[in-house]
Design a protein around this nucleic acid. Structure first.
Lengths: 301, 301
DNA sequence: ATACGCCTTCGCCGATCGCGAAGGGTCACC
DNA sequence: GGTGACCCTTCGCGATCGGCGAAGGCGTAT
């Protein structure tokens, strides 16, 4: 039974140097890049191999080549170093006077439409707090909060929310954006059905807007003509501007992006176009002081 | 401009000890637990605080209490140490003779229905390879492969697969499971519509089976009566057995779980009940030798 | 007041780490 | 087939780091 060597004997410096060697495939260059003597780098590598009992690189006359074990270590080392990097970055914030940190997951609509102003106001009142905001599709927001990756989540209300505390955040309405010269422009509020004759520009396939509209198309007994998926509402709008089709976006997003691009929007009359956006957190664990503040601020926002 | 201190000055040992202190909220006990002298633990903690320039714990006469910065560090430290743990575990495999490691993401259906036998056969031919298998909903399988978290993915074919190389893996058919005394039992192949009068037991909301059947319900102009979501097909079957409703599961899964639970299954006639399951990987990056082997084995499986 | 629990500081010693120098391969080019 | 250009490894030395136990400060309990 070879006991797994405790993570102790492992040094982040060695990992960093290993990554450099693996990337450069050349000890000399790697040592230069890491500002360390060639001999020291060599020793660290040899020690790693000795500790793990595994050859990590095949030495060739003109450099080094990763073994399978080396490939695996490279992958893991990057993860470890990335996590360490995040750690120091956060600590550095605290040193600069930050007094609290909240991890927040939110869907793209919320990030584009509502969070900027709400967070701005929040930071005015709490300059000493910081928010780590990550974009996720609504379903993954829920998962992330359940798993404790983040304390707070913002997502559309239709995910499976049991075990979480839910408070309403915003209500938003989807609108149809199109070029000003589009046949549908100026016709007033539209039924989703009316848009099905045209190509739709969508976010990535996990987005709740896309899933929703696809379902709605089925409900109409038709299928959604989606010509392209692009990342981000700005890309959606530019694509619409290019005349590739129409798109569904939250009304506030149109207010931000659409006007400056001289696009046109019509309201959508279907009931599902009104979406409830909520704030969620684990019911079991109490919120940190910082998260509590943010939660309050968003709820009142 | 305070430069972020490089991850170098960070020692995994210090992090481990910090975690112990934070958990025990008592230096003496933490030092005992980590088998280190009290003085050494104290010094490591002091050094951490000095390096980060931040107070991590408030000293009270009866122990220690985490500050906000300490809470944050605890979170990060756990991540870093977890990653380091994974690293050493994998390296330990290699030392024991493993010659390759493949990270594989798959949806639950594949994991339950097909992978066990295919992997068994694979390991017979390749006892020196190892597979890290993680369950994800199909959409996240795709994301994981795109982001390089795993080399190979197995998912249903309907996700957005551009940029990935796709080969067919299996075709499976969904069946309706129910208790033997259920009204629908023994009526022969069913249309999904016929099941809508009864409660449905579902996997978590991200599962493609659930999303699919919900869409199908809409297509029928009805809504799915879902009484409960449970994690895992075994839980689904037990819930069905308890008489809480019917459920859709892949036919092979019924073969494995259903019979021993004296459940009954009927085929589903709707065309969407036949699902294509595929193997995907990044087209851009070449597969490692080990992944190549697994890919071949699964494809032929 | 005394004793106890909890943390910090200090001085000493052994282990670790980095550096430069020396060494030994392979390949390319005369 | 020598010679030089690379590329990596090994070795010995000095500096630094990290651990240990002893001594000390501080608050609380008795």
């Amino acid at each position: 039974m070879t006991s797994i060597l405790p993570p102790d004997r492992l040094s982040l410096t060695s990992l960093r140097i290993f990554v450099a060697i693996a990337e450069e495939r050349n000890l000399t260059r790697a040592a230069g890049r890491e500002a360390i003597a060639l001999s020291a780098a060599s020793k660290r590598l040899a020690d790693l191999e000795a500790d793990f009992g595994v050859r990590l690189l095949d030495r060739t006359p003109r450099g080094m080549r990763l073994t399978a074990a080396g490939e695996s270590l490279l992958h893991h080392a990057r993860r470890v170093l990335g996590a360490a990097q995040d750690l120091t970055a956060d600590m550095s914030d605290f040193r600069k006077g930050v007094r609290g940190h909240v991890r927040l997951l939110a869907n793209l609509s919320a990030i584009v439409a509502y969070l900027p102003e709400d967070l701005e106001r929040f930071f005015l009142n709490h300059p000493d707090l910081r928010v780590d905001l990550q974009e996720r599709p609504s379903l993954e927001v829920v998962r992330g909060v359940e798993e404790g990756q983040a304390e707070l989540g913002i997502c559309s209300a239709h995910a499976d929310l049991q075990g979480l505390t839910v408070v309403p955040y915003k209500t938003d309405d989807l609108v149809v954006v199109m070029r000003a010269d589009h046949p549908l422009a100026g016709r007033g509020p539209l039924a989703f059905r009316d848009t099905l004759a045209f190509d739709h520009i969508g976010l990535h396939a996990e987005s709740s807007i896309f899933m929703r509209s696809q379902r709605a198309a089925r409900d109409e007994g038709m299928s959604l003509r989606r010509r392209i998926h692009v990342p981000g509402f700005d890309a959606v709008c530019r694509t619409v501007q290019a005349g590739l089709g129409v798109a569904l976006i939250p009304a506030p997003v149109f207010g931000i992006l659409g006007s400056s691009m001289s696009l046109h929007a019509e309201a959508l009359t279907d009931p599902w176009a009104r979406r409830e956006i909520v704030i969620v957190h684990q019911s079991a664990r109490p919120l940190s002081a910082a998260a509590e503040r943010l939660h309050d601020a968003l709820r009142r926002g």
